[in-house]
């Protein structure tokens, strides 16, 4: 197993191909639940969890069911179906056995069901031709990247809430501008990883 390759995949998906800030997937929770750092962390952690679970479930489905039957074109529908069922399953299990965690994640779990970032990760893993281990590492990286973006941005947002923005810019407009600047800053990472291990 090429260990360096895995690290490159991890760092690439955290920093360079950050799902929120570079690919603009999962913007809804990024803007919706980034008001407080603890909520943002909760959301980020549950996204990591669901991304890993989703990849673990969809990778075998793609390669052992869809590919042999030449049903690759059904990928999106099947993945949505599986991810939705999976999140529901996780929610029920958490509710029963870890009520504390369920209470703190409760609101976010159903949100993740329809999160495009989760679907995006699973589909990108297939299109990038990763094997199972690589896919899992890539999902972990994407999840971490999502968490990083959420936490960073909730910090930025706490500042913008307190700043004296012009009246017409208060609220969502200034948040979107801040998001754009944070996203720009992540462009600084492009090219860094490839040169690091070259």
């Amino acid at each position: 197993m090429d260990f360096t390759g895995l690290i490159v995949i991890l760092l690439t998906s955290v920093l360079v191909n950050n799902y929120v800030l570079s690919k603009f997937l999962g913007i809804c929770p990024f803007l919706g639940v980034s008001k407080k750092i603890d909520q943002a962390t909760g959301m980020g952690l549950s996204v990591i969890f669901v991304m890993l679970m989703a990849t673990a479930a969809t990778w075998p489905i793609q390669y052992y069911i869809l590919e042999p039957l030449k049903l690759g074109y059904m990928q999106t529908i099947v993945f949505i179906l599986v991810i939705a069922a999976l999140v529901q399953l996780v929610e029920m299990i958490l509710k029963k056995y870890v009520p504390g965690l369920h209470a703190s994640l409760g609101v976010y779990l159903p949100l993740i069901t329809t999160n495009c970032a989760v679907l995006g990760v699973t589909i990108n893993n297939i299109t990038d031709g990763y094997n199972f281990i690589e896919s899992m590492v890539s999902s972990l990286g994407c999840g971490l990247g999502f968490l990083l973006a959420m936490v960073l941005f909730s910090g930025v947002r706490m500042r913008t809430e307190n700043c004296d923005a012009p009246k017409s810019m208060k609220g969502l407009p200034i948040t979107l501008i801040a998001a754009a600047i944070v996203s720009l800053s992540f462009f600084g990472f492009s090219g860094v990883i490839d040169n690091l291990f070259a």
Partner: peptide
């Protein structure tokens, strides 16, 4: 296949 996957998911749930 798709309805099968849906059925399996439904039964598990």
């Amino acid at each position: 296949i798709v309805s099968g996957i849906g059925l399996v998911c439904g039964i598990i749930l």
